[in-house]
């Protein structure tokens, strides 16, 4: 079973490296935002696999924290791309 965890960790690390390349190279802003969101998700899976490997429960809260921060960041970026501003001044325009 431990072998299975290590193989998954290696695969996710390869995906992480590919996403980093897309984050640096990405031709448009939307590519970079999608790469950043996927980076957050693969970070969450890396932390989950690590806590399985070293058999601890202390990292589980970090998973929820990373997911929340990644969600808010992606929502803010999406709104910025769509409208050009993050907080609109009067909402009922």
């Amino acid at each position: 079973m431990m072998m299975f965890y290590w193989i998954s960790l290696a695969i996710i690390s390869v995906a992480f490296a590919g996403l980093l390349v897309r984050l640096v190279k990405g031709p448009t802003v939307a590519d970079r935002v999608v790469a950043l969101d996927a980076l957050g998700i693969s970070l969450v899976s890396i932390v989950a696999l690590l806590s399985l490997i070293i058999e601890t429960e202390f990292f589980l809260e970090i998973i929820l924290l990373l997911s929340i921060l990644s969600f808010i960041g992606t929502a803010a970026f999406a709104k910025f791309i769509e409208r050009g501003e993050i907080f609109d001044r009067d909402h009922n325009r």
């Binding site: 808010i72 929502a75 709104k79 993050i86 907080f87 609109d88 001044r89 009067d90 909402h91």
Partner: peptide, 9 residues
């Protein structure tokens, strides 16, 4: 997140 969805005012 509230500010993102509903505006700052």
């Amino acid at each position: 997140l509230l500010m993102l969805a509903f505006g700052i005012q």
